[in-house]
């Protein structure tokens, strides 16, 4: 069957099998290997991407179901060559060690900040509660998301100021 969707702003059309999962469509058909594929049982959350701006576990969604929708992956987080504040936060606060859970964590974190620009540590923990990290113990992930929130708050206050530094 044929499926068409928008991936990171680009229209793509491919011939696929009905049973192809979205995660494999992204990784194997489109070559977007930033989205990771882990437990295959919708528990670990490393495969989280957005469908119409809502995070979804792409190992538990058919590529066909995403047809006609807008998909965004971790490759689509940076804009115009500039890392998203969430990505910078993960760098600044050591939000990753092995990096396996990171794409899913960052997609969920970005979606959270879009809805709630100033989440508490508890709200961050709730948002990522369906995602597993075996390195960090989550503390630095929470800190990374807080860093991004503070950075964006600063930038909103002083839009004309330079965007280097400025975060806690």
């Amino acid at each position: 069957m044929q499926v068409s969707m928008t991936v990171n702003g680009e229209e793509v059309t491919r011939e696929i099998e009905g049973r192809l999962l979205l995660v494999h469509f992204l990784r194997d058909v489109l070559g977007l290997t930033g989205t990771h594929w882990g437990c295959d049982t919708s528990n670990c959350g490393t495969c989280v991407v957005w469908v119409d701006e809502k995070p979804v576990k792409s190992c538990t969604m058919l590529a066909a179901m995403a047809g006609g929708h807008e998909v965004r992956t971790v490759e689509g987080l940076a804009q115009n060559g500039e890392l998203d504040p969430v990505q910078r936060g993960f760098m600044e606060c050591h939000g990753l060690q092995c990096g396996f859970c990171t794409p899913g964590m960052m997609m969920t974190a970005r979606a959270l900040l879009n809805e709630n620009p100033d989440p508490s540590p508890d709200e961050i923990r709730e948002a990522i509660s369906g995602q597993i990290c075996r390195c960090t113990g989550y503390a630095t992930i929470v800190r990374s998301v807080r860093w991004a929130a503070a950075y964006e708050a600063d930038r909103a206050e002083a839009p004309a100021a330079t965007t280097t530094g400025g975060a806690p």
Partner: peptide, 8 residues
């Protein structure tokens, strides 16, 4: 479940 699963 969790917030991501609840989205769908």
């Amino acid at each position: 479940a969790d917030p991501v699963v609840r989205n769908w």
